[in-house]
Design a protein around this nucleic acid. Structure first.
Lengths: 308, 308
DNA sequence: GCATTAGTTTCATAATTGTGAAACTAAACA
DNA sequence: TGTTTAGTTTCACAATTATGAAACTAATGC
């Protein structure tokens, strides 16, 4: 008899906490019937649960029936122990929530420049979502050129980057975010400014000085493809605008970025059906080690913000 | 995404502790493969459990794979929280064991007198077994007459009694323990002491003065059955011996109790084939409220000690 | 570059658990 | 004494959980 009970006690560690919750509810309600509303199960279910718990613990927990309900002496002791145990479980839950909430550490991310005016770019929406999910995460945002973003991500200085896709690395994971439409522009003082598109051929383009980005990028790639040799090298699209304004250069800009200057009549698009390309913006992160939870959260926020 | 995770967190309270035990084992073994021996389940099972736990907690617990095993920062925090929780569970188990061991309170029992010399009575064996099972239970043993035992049990002054069966009450539960053989005796100065059994008939018995118990008992019942009117009323079998020794009375005694006086030649059994009856000794306890666990334990010990 | 190893995922199956319905018991109440 | 109420027990069913086998991936080591 005692041996059998200690055997059952040995199984106590895997006891279903639900039975203890039922017991607590019954004890606090003062009977099975009263506990029905609390637990939202029938009396027969409560009866079995309490009976099962009594068998598992080897203790009669309460006297119950038409004659009334009362915890036994052992039942009161088990009830107190149950309150302590369930309290520990609540503490554990709080600790897990703490881990969730303060998945601190900092994270640093690097974004490519001049995305803010692109209506297809929902970076701010992604950041807002992320702030909702992890308000206590400290976020550093860097505006960097592509190669700097890529190197920083690979070296761990940035946990995540957003760049125009141009080359791939087996060490990085990529996720498409949005597209950017690039067109070729010239300033109003440029010879091609007054020339009809139909009259502008590749020779005319090659004869023009070309302002291009000095690092590996879609911009550099398309320049290479058209045989456009950089007559001036810049590292930022704003510098390209400066160059166009001189009337001496042509260069590619994103349509959303160029729009302001277009409206002012300062620049025009050169033969946009022909001289244009689509730029695929992607989020990048290292494949190994796997990103932390908060980085993954931001990664997912970017995906959701740019869905459809 | 956060909503989904907080929903899962809301379910945390019912989490299977087994997943946390698996996680602890994996963390302490330093990998899934090493944990296989510890847990005695396959790696696929461990993998699923850890994956399931990560989903439930909304946290990546560890980096693992061919490249090695390491807890994440969050995993280390969850591991510490898990140790605390499982420690609380061990504490709970200890508290339950304590309840088991010291199901204290007192219990009081009442035994009928003059059973100690009956070889069929294993009261001491039952008490020894009980002491093994519940060494910290404080036991009060009272030697009382039948009616006092019965009233005490019904009134709750005694949780259990042992009496010769003679009448039943619907309020009490009965359990057979052992039998006692009763014979009719007379002292050496009594006229029947020298008379052969074959010469002793019922008339001779009725002509003799009869010493009988003054309260409702098997002794009283058998006296009534034989038409023996009590010439002296006693409340204890020892007083019956006194009466026999006067040479003026006959009376019933249990054979085991009479044996000492028989051997001294002070008394003899009268026609034992004819004038004898068997007494059934029973344990009694109240039917309602149900007995406490320790009373039930003693009840069972009595049954086991008197089995076969 | 191939073999080995740690871990992952899917499938099929078995075992366990939870539940309400229904029929019942026993005690309290009118 | 009959009705009501709290609780019990059994049955049938649904849902959940756990597991190994098998096929796979990816990283490491030789």
């Amino acid at each position: 008899m005692a041996r059998k009970q200690t055997a059952l006690l040995g199984q106590l560690s895997d006891i279903d906490l639900r039975l203890l919750r039922v017991f607590r509810a019954v004890a606090e309600a003062g009977g099975f019937s009263a506990a029905e509303l609390e637990l939202n199960v029938g009396r027969s279910t409560i009866s079995r649960h309490i009976k099962d718990l009594e068998v598992r613990l080897g203790v009669t927990l309460c006297q119950r029936g038409r004659g009334g309900f009362a915890l036994t002496s052992e039942g009161r002791q088990i009830y107190q122990a149950t309150l302590r145990l369930l309290g520990s479980l609540d503490t554990f839950r709080g600790e897990v929530a703490d881990v969730h909430r303060r998945m601190t550490g900092h994270i640093s991310i690097a974004l490519f420049d001049k995305m803010v005016t692109n209506p297809a770019a929902h970076i701010s929406e992604a950041l807002r979502r992320f702030d909702d999910l992890a308000p206590e995460v400290s976020l550093d945002i860097h505006i960097e050129p592509i190669n700097e973003i890529e190197r920083g991500v690979m070296e761990g200085r940035f946990q995540l980057g957003v760049v125009p896709a141009h080359r791939t690395s087996p060490s990085l994971e990529y996720q498409h975010l949005f597209y950017e439409q690039m067109y070729l522009y010239c300033g109003y003082r440029h010879p091609l400014f007054g020339t009809a598109d139909i009259s502008i051929d590749d020779d005319a383009i090659r004869e023009s000085k070309y302002a291009g980005l000095g690092y590996h990028s879609p911009n550099m790639e398309v320049g290479n493809r058209l045989g456009l040799e950089r007559d001036i090298t810049v590292n930022d699209q704003e510098a390209i605008v400066h160059c166009l304004q001189t009337g001496r250069y042509i260069g590619y800009l994103p349509d959303h970025y160029a729009e302001t200057f277009l409206k002012k009549g300062e620049i025009r698009a050169i033969h946009p059906q022909r001289y244009q390309y689509e730029c695929d913006f992607v989020a990048i992160q290292r494949l190994s080690p796997r990103p932390s939870r908060i980085v993954q959260t931001l990664w997912d926020c970017l995906a959701e913000a740019h869905a459809d």
